[in-house]
Design a protein around this nucleic acid. Structure first.
Lengths: 197, 197
DNA sequence: CTAATCTGAGACATCGATGTCGCAAACGAG
DNA sequence: CTCGTTTGCGACATCGATGTCTCAGATTAG
């Protein structure tokens, strides 16, 4: 009685295809999923339903990554070590998320659905509270507006997505690149004076 | 004999409106420009023409910012001071560009027009050569893949756009925030030695 | 095997956006 | 003021995508 291609498989195929071709039609998405257009509509009555499901999957993953890093408890604790660990864990998880849901990250239609906007706002505020705690504990610079920090992470997710999509860097290297760039920047490190003896 | 609303004014109005509503129709763009739909089509026969003009204006500004910072000469010189100055100048100019052309930065349609893709690729390669020179001179960390550096700047431009669009930070503060975040990261500044090698 | 269910293919109506055209009114240079 | 130009308005045809529907064939449970 179950479908050969589950709803989740269709979402995944659509997600993958939309990452490469963000303005693909329902017909193209059906083809990408290996099903007929009619069957696609049996799973998702409208295009909006499909995009919403995609956005919800993305938001769910985002939330799960926050949960897995336990950022609320870390923020409440105020412990620098714990905050630093949670920050590293969250950003590392985000790398995978950005690779898996890069499309939803910037798609105009998805980010315009009211329920998803609300959800995203909630997660963002939660994350901002975490960043603020990191600043208070000295894990992050306190002289940066916390919303700038949040937007920076968002922008770097897009950097990650592009780097993965274009194959500019190896997947396994990305977490360290992200962490390094976010925490200490792209400027020379103190021990590194550009190779001069 | 000139139109009341010049072509440039229409482009600017369209750009501004598309920043707020990225999926606006030609009718909405005409209204936003204070012009009838017919008149809009007298300036741009097709929607694609309008978007292309917008993308070209964006690419032109990008190129101008590279030119103004004189990144080619700086890269050729290999002089750390000159490279650092050029880098700061370019990124500062990019802040204005990201505010003015934030729409073209991520729009799927604009970024799929072949001629614009080619143009963007050229500018990107030019910029990458500059970053590589910065790495050689010790102005940027040499242990980061240069394309990662390039993608990081791209992502941070989106951070800038969002920060400006949502009013999270004052416009005048953005350049320093960008420079600071890009060069030294969001981690705590353990030891500020002001550029002493 | 049989029956229930799911799927693919195609036809169909609909809808919104696009692009074109003609004409009357407004405008501006002279 | 007058003439040539430009604009706005509305009508029109077109087009692609969407969503619905039917029916025949395939699949699978029992």
């Amino acid at each position: 009685m179950g479908s050969m291609r589950s709803t989740d498989e269709i979402i995944e195929a659509a997600n993958r295809h939309l990452t490469a071709d963000p303005i693909a039609s329902m017909a193209q998405l059906a083809e990408a999923a290996g099903v007929s257009r009619a069957t696609l509509h049996r799973h998702f009555a409208t295009r909006e339903d499909l995009l919403r499901a995609l956005g919800e999957a993305s938001a769910r993953r985002w939330e799960e990554s926050q949960d897995a890093a336990d950022i609320d408890a870390a923020a409440a604790s105020g412990d620098p070590d714990r905050l630093a660990t949670a920050l590293r864990a969250m950003l590392t998880a985000f790398v995978v998320d950005a690779g898996d849901f890069g499309f939803a990250l910037t798609d105009h239609f998805v980010n315009h659905l009211p329920e998803l906007v609300e959800w995203a706002t909630r997660l963002e505020e939660r994350e901002i509270a975490f960043y603020a705690a990191c600043q208070d504990a000295g894990v992050l610079r306190a002289d940066l507006p916390v919303r700038w920090v949040s937007n920076t992470v968002y922008g770097l997710m897009i950097s990650v997505r592009e780097s993965l999509r274009r194959g500019d860097v190896a997947r396994r290297d990305v977490p360290d690149l992200l962490l390094g760039t976010f925490m200490t920047g792209a400027g020379p490190t103190e021990n590194d004076n550009g190779g001069r003896p």
